[in-house]
Design a protein around this nucleic acid. Sequence first.
DNA 1: CTTGCCCATGACATCGATGTGAGCGTTTAG
DNA 2: CTAAACGCTCACATCGATGTCATGGGCAAG
Lengths: 123, 123
Amino acid sequence: MRIGELSARTGASRRSLRYYEQQGLLVSTRSPSGQRCYNDDHVQRVALIQTFLAAGMSTMSIAQMVPCMAEPTTAKALHALAVMNHERARLTSTIDSLTAAREALDHLIEVNRSFLANAADAA
Amino acid sequence: MRIGELSARTGASRRSLRYYEQQGLLVSTRSPSGQRCYNDDHVQRVALIQTFLAAGMSTMSIAQMVPCMAEPTTAKALHALAVMNHERARLTSTIDSLTAAREALDHLIEVNRSFLANAADAA
DNA sequence: CTTGCCCATGACATCGATGTGAGCGTTTAG
DNA sequence: CTAAACGCTCACATCGATGTCATGGGCAAG
């Protein structure tokens, strides 16, 4: 399939797909005229990229982690594993931050509800 | 206290504190010469702002939620409550995304470990 | 062949929180 | 009084993923 179809299937814009390739997250074969050709595996790969990007990872981290394009080497795998563990820790820490924020928010919501209840009583 | 001390106590840069004020997240009284004056309450408020910013909320959302500066009005409180519920849903959804990413990452880590184990066996 | 749609590359714009630096007043310690 | 340290405002820079536009080539149906 060409870029338009991959875009339609994944929801990633053509612009983004080209950017992923430029950043080394995605490899494509090219038709004789230079157009990018993809297969079903690429759909999966893009889905994974989207998952990671949505989690706030940088394209650089993703490029280091996902041995998508090249043959896996022991050295590469070791490096990838290091990055993965680092990113995993970051994810966990971010989840904790979000959870803390949500609790703070719940507290504010409570306070706000009380205020409104009191205002209603007074009226 | 002046801005330097608040900065030291909260870890937010002076630049950030002025920005928070400009965005309506923080109010300060001014000395006759125009310098910002803060008290202990401001330390708490900045901590809350930091919690929310770290969770990816925009200053605009925070400004709408936190009735920091002005007297609470019923209308304002209703609006704030709407924003809060919206932000809470966003937080929950983001937490879900992060959790999904972490699971995908765990899977990749597993695959990577297996590869390395096999490579070690082969050697 | 031509029209219409898809694709390629490259350049510039965007958003939001923060860094940084200039130029100038204020406060405080010696 | 003076110098150091701090504060004020304004303006410009930054980062990263993406949008958008310009210019030009590729391909299929009429």
